[in-house]
Design a protein around this nucleic acid. Structure first.
Lengths: 359, 359
DNA sequence: CTGAAAGCGCTTACAG
DNA sequence: CTGAAAGCGCTTACAG
């Protein structure tokens, strides 16, 4: 007998159903099954009968009714932009941290996706209609920041906000220090010509990474050797950028190392370099940024800068659920440390410089 | 002036507030602002005044109240197990498809994470308390499948369920055909000794992949050449499995190709082989399964089997929101086709066989 | 065209 | 120890 579609008529048991089955009021059932306060005492025997009937009827408190009454849903929102139709590895790391923390506090996570921060900023407030008790903005880039995007009755927290949003607590990682550390590592390995593929112009994170790069070179009195080309943040951006650079520099010496805007860009570069027979790290060293899972699965594995995205996500959840843990001043972001992840994609510079191949 | 924590007292405007401001009943406001049915006609002028006041007060219908009344939340659940504390690339692909489809139907997605399918199966029904209108199970492995795990009033859909769950529609991809196709590709390239690193014993997907491998060999009358070792599904599993195989087969000829349980395992193998100076694809060809983003970022890029995870996620959403699109029989899974993704990790077998290095 | 009433399922005072 | 009442914000019949 093939199973058939289930009739959608079956209704879950309510407190009234349980009460009726036992012969008491819904209120008594509520006190036993959901009541947190101990002031209302129920006799042990009716208590047991209520418990038994509730189990038999598979009673579960209705979340919508409870939310309406308590004015909170025990749910947090997570809003992110989907670039080119795909959430990326960066988001996945944040999501992991957010889910883990939310679980601890018995909260759910609802994911909202936007096409574009500026265009969809107005929709943010629409999500605050009782569905969620707080909203986490993942890497928002809201340049046109009108006050009405964050509603008066809910708290927002941002992670890696591109610019301050009034009333929104921001969580950052120290990207400047991370960039400084990783470029210093390259320098300490003997690299003197390090090409930086910078992130998208206008993005704060890209600026921090560039600034850390410059500060490291400066510390070695090598500012004159700085060479920067703008790339973006995607693998395809990385491919295009390095391809263009190779085309324009045929016959010249290759840099001995690449400092890429992020892991995705680094992977794009590795792909193109491999096509030209340029080996990593024998011929050229490469470092990325973010320490996404792609950094661990590439060949060779990527030296990169770890941002504690998981912890940052968890902190965002904590800020919303336990606002008393928030810092005094909302204007200064909470900053997490970054850390270099040293892997196989960095070696010593090769003795005889590699030349850019002629096409 | 530093911004201060917002007083959480501010309450969003209700229909009653809007009605009061205009001087009409909440019901009229409802008819204008949220009413879908046209039977209730409001005069154009009061209509406009209601609209104006609603905008001024930033009225938004309360989702909890509406859900209580309509008995649906416009939200779907997505449940997955977090292996070793991390959601993986496979999940991310499914999530992408699910979010995209949910957006089209104006539904939200709430993510639930479990530690272990069998242990936490009982919690599934707890989520069905009015928070969601349907639940998607991502790759569930519920061996001890008692009927009460799926509640009577909600529909569940599974993606890649390891075994049938009564009353749950399952969505599959044709893994057997995918394995057959990719192994046939290896055979067509001249490979005759193909080692299979099989997925975890007991998992249905691993069986399909093994079966496709065997069928392809059989079609070439090469069943006698089959060689299978059990690996798992993680990169570390892949490293261990290939390391063990190399240790036990020192001095013998290497297989000319590896068919790995999935991309992660393939990457683990590539890493270990590289350590032994064995080149891909010159010395040995490698194929994976899943076509996760790691397959595109490895060097060389991985030949693998693409499963349309995004589409499968989208179909799951559609099944829950438009149950009329469900197939007649729930017992037969919906099967999506798989497809070989040919990339650089496969070449022709080398003329002189590579030997397993002595340690 | 407009409103008073009842109800969705729960909880929070308040009586008995 | 237990229950009747009122309310959370919305909607759906039903009157006027």
């Amino acid at each position: 007998m093939p199973s058939t579609r289930k009739p959608t008529k079956i209704k879950p048991a309510t407190l009234a159903d349980v009460g009726r089955a036992v012969g008491v009021s819904a209120m008594s059932a509520s006190a036993v099954l959901n009541g947190s306060r101990t002031s209302t005492r129920i006799s042990p025997e009716t208590r047991n009968r209520i418990l038994a009937e509730a189990a038999r009827l598979r009673y579960r408190p209705n979340a919508a009714a409870r939310a309406l009454n308590r004015r909170q849903m025990s749910t947090l929102g997570l809003a992110a932009v989907v670039d080119s139709g795909e959430l990326n590895a960066y988001f996945l790391e944040v999501l992991n941290g957010v889910l883990q923390a939310a679980g601890k506090f018995d909260h759910n996570i609802t994911v909202f996706t936007l096409r574009d921060w500026n265009v969809d900023a107005g929709r943010l407030a629409d999500f605050c209609d009782g569905r969620i008790d707080g909203l986490i903005l993942v890497a928002p880039v809201i340049t046109d920041c009108r006050p009405e995007i964050v509603p008066a009755h809910l708290q927002f927290v941002s992670i890696h906000s591109n610019n301050p949003i009034p009333g929104v607590i921001d969580i950052e990682s120290d990207e400047e220090a991370g960039a400084f550390e990783i470029v210093s590592h390259l320098l300490s390995q003997g690299h003197r010509h390090i090409l930086h593929l910078a992130g998208p112009e206008g993005l704060q994170g890209a600026k921090y990474r560039l600034s850390g790069y410059q500060r490291a070179l400066s510390a070695y009195h090598l500012s004159a050797n700085a060479e920067v080309i703008e790339s973006g943040y995607s693998t395809e951006n990385g491919r295009c950028a390095i391809r263009a650079w190779l085309r324009e520099n045929q016959g010249r010496a290759m840099p001995s190392a690449l400092f890429c805007a992020n892991d995705a860009v680094a992977l794009g570069c590795m792909e193109i370099l491999a096509q030209h027979g340029i080996r990593v790290p024998e011929d050229i060293s490469i470092v990325g940024f973010d320490d996404t899972l792609a950094a661990r699965t590439s060949t060779p594995q990527l030296t990169t800068v770890r941002q504690p995205l998981c912890q940052m996500g968890a902190r965002a959840v904590e800020l919303l659920i336990k606002p008393e843990t928030a810092p005094q001043t909302l204007d200064t972001p909470i900053v997490f440390p970054t850390q270099a992840s040293i892997r196989a994609s960095v070696g010593r510079p090769s003795a005889n410089p590699v030349m850019v191949p002629r096409l």
